[in-house]
Design a protein around this nucleic acid. Structure first.
Length: 609
DNA sequence: AAAAAAG
């Protein structure tokens, strides 16, 4: 079985133990100029004074990390920096501000090294799996772009002028080469264009929108407008995501990318004490990562203003714009004080992009570029999908059989992680209890648990302490949980997209994954799309499932409208979609280097995680 | 109908 690019990317980029080859460290980025130091309060809109012929920012100023490409030592002292010169931070509130340096901040405000949490488990897992990554597999990846004047993709980080500090972090992250989505999305974003992007998770999606944002903030022109109150903060970028845990994850990643750039990243989400988040905000925020509810709260308290927003990114954008979230998003984006589309830059990322949602989303975009990177099946062909007919009453004992078998298999001495999806919160609790009663160490994550419990469950699962996690759809999207060997759809979802997102929690990082679904009459409406999806991914479709699929061909609410491909296609082109899979629509940009070997088949969105 | 997201 061939490794997909996403897995290769994840493998090499995220988990790669192969010492960071400094492909990008030498790229002494000009234009990465920083504001002059201030010893006094500097309002946010004045913090990014355009460069006055300053040398590049210091990429590195401490001794804790080796091999970070210190570059030219002179630049470190080339200009005074806020962080190095500020005396004790003129009065609490302004303490972080004016610090774009990357120099050590005074005393307690020193930036915590976000790379410090490398866990040993990770290292141990990595050793065996990171050799022989075949980057040539990238050649197979089809790319679809549409829109006017699409900037061409880049092949290396060095080609992109992200600046020295950011490049140093890229090295620290052991990113050697941009992933396909990064190769395309970053130039588009750096060119200031709005973007609707389809990309698999694990493909460096977070970096794809974080890099341009951080880079843009570092070099940005200030928007001149007075703050309207001292307690109000004015982030320059807003990143929204549908779950608290996903926001936390994005925050963790963004902090790594922004390390020692002086760009401040703050996260705000519900279920946690707001006071701590308020304190973080008061220390200064450039990039705010948030879930919608808590953000609305902060906006209504006037503790956050969106007036200065230059960048808006929606992760899992199709989820953010579905029935449950859309009003809140509309409120945040259209009814508060955020600059309108065309003034701000907007980036939407998702894996699945139904055309109805694309249409909704276009309200938030201005003259945008549509980008789809990846090949149908590229995410899922590493995942062996099994569907078993199991009556409701037999599900528990069936699950127990699976778990026993897995335990017997024993993976490298380390207990393999199993993620079990159920339909309801109550069902999650009940199943967890039952598993524990039967000697299987399980925990659960769902919306009825306290935030503390949720976070603890996730930590415990990730660490392998509790190798079975029973989850609702709260854990279906975006979460990067390494080493999930098996996803069990104890209850199948009603929507095929949810299924795709769920099984996408395994089969990551170039490893094989296994996904088992329990199917019965209750899931008849999913039969057709499930069978189609499995066929797409070259999976064996049980004959009985095909019969179900044929039977339910009329009622198929879940069937792709128009016969498929709605995930990887620009809805603006809906007029002419009866084309072959290898013939891409493209207006002005064909990504040279990518073969036309892929093609999007029916039910295509399913391959997008 | 369920889940998520504010308290």
């Amino acid at each position: 079985m061939r490794a997909s690019w996403a897995d290769l990317a994840a493998n090499s980029a995220v988990e790669n133990a192969g010492a960071g080859a400094g492909t990008s460290a030498n790229n002494a980025g000009p234009g990465n100029s920083l504001p002059p130091s201030r010893s006094t309060y500097v309002p946010p809109h004045l913090r990014n004074r355009p460069p006055s012929a300053e040398p590049p920012a210091p990429a590195y100023s401490g001794g804790t990390t080796s091999g970070a490409g210190t570059a030219n030592a002179g630049s470190r002292w080339g200009a005074p920096r806020g962080g190095e010169y500020r005396s004790g931070g003129g009065g609490g509130r302004g303490s972080g501000w004016g610090n774009r340096s990357g120099g050590w901040d005074c005393g307690r405000d020193r930036e915590v090294n976000p790379f410090g949490d490398q866990d040993d488990t990770e290292e141990a897992f990595n050793e065996q799996e990171n050799s022989g990554i075949n980057f040539d597999a990238y050649e197979d990846i089809p790319v679809e772009t549409s829109g006017n004047n699409v900037p061409p993709p880049v092949n290396t980080f060095a080609e992109i002028d992200l600046g020295e500090a950011l490049n140093a972090n890229i090295t620290r992250c052991k990113y050697v080469k941009p992933t396909p989505v990064q190769r395309h999305a970053i130039p588009i974003s750096l060119a200031g264009r709005d973007l609707m992007a389809c990309a698999q998770t694990g493909s460096g999606k977070t970096a794809a929108f974080c890099f341009p944002i951080i880079s843009g903030i570092l070099r940005g022109q200030p928007m001149q407008r007075p703050p309207r109150g001292v307690r109000t903060v004015y982030p320059l970028a807003l990143v929204l995501s549908p779950t608290r845990e996903l926001s936390m994850q994005i925050h963790d990643e963004a902090r790594k990318f922004a390390y020692q750039t002086g760009v401040k990243v703050v996260v705000a989400y519900g279920g946690a004490p707001i006071n701590h988040q308020l304190r973080d905000l008061e220390k200064g925020v450039d990039i705010l990562v948030a879930t919608p509810g808590r953000l609305v709260d902060l906006l209504e308290r006037a503790r956050v203003s969106l007036q200065m927003i230059r960048y808006l990114a929606l992760d899992e954008a199709d989820r953010m714009l579905d029935m449950g979230f859309e009003p809140q998003i509309r409120k945040i984006v259209e009814q508060m004080d955020m600059p309108p589309a065309g003034v701000r830059q907007t980036m939407l990322f998702s894996a699945t992009f139904p055309k109805e949602i694309q249409r909704l989303a276009s309200d938030f975009l201005s003259s945008y570029i549509f980008l789809a990177v990846g090949r149908v099946g590229s995410s899922t062909d590493l995942i062996v999908q099994r569907v078993e007919y199991v009556q409701e009453s037999d599900k528990r004992s069936h699950l127990m059989d699976l778990l026993h078998a897995q335990r017997a298999n024993g993976v490298h001495g380390k207990q393999a992680l199993t993620l079990v999806f159920v339909e309801t919160k109550k069902g999650a609790d009940a199943l967890e209890h039952w598993l524990c009663m039967n000697g299987f160490p399980a925990t659960t994550i769902h919306g009825d648990r306290t935030q503390q419990e949720r976070e603890m469950a996730l930590r415990s699962f990730k660490s392998g302490n509790t190798p079975i996690l029973v989850a609702t759809d709260v854990a279906a999207r975006g979460l990067d949980i390494p080493h999930v060997a098996h996803v069990v759809n104890f209850d199948l979802p009603n929507d095929i997209d949810d299924y795709v997102h769920r099984i996408g929690r395994t089969g990551r990082a170039g490893k094989k994954g296994l996904a088992t679904a329990f199917f019965n009459d209750n899931n008849a409406s999913l039969a057709r799309s499930l069978a189609e999806l499995m066929q797409e991914a070259n999976q064996e479709v049980p004959a009985w499932l095909s019969r179900y699929a044929a039977r339910s061909s009329f009622g198929g609410r879940n069937r792709r409208s128009g016969g498929g491909r709605f995930g990887g296609r620009d809805f603006r082109r809906e007029g002419s979609f009866n084309r072959g899979g290898s013939d891409y629509y493209n207006a002005g940009n064909n990504s040279a280097g990518y073969g036309a070997s892929g093609g999007y088949g029916a039910g295509a969105s399913s391959a997008w995680d």
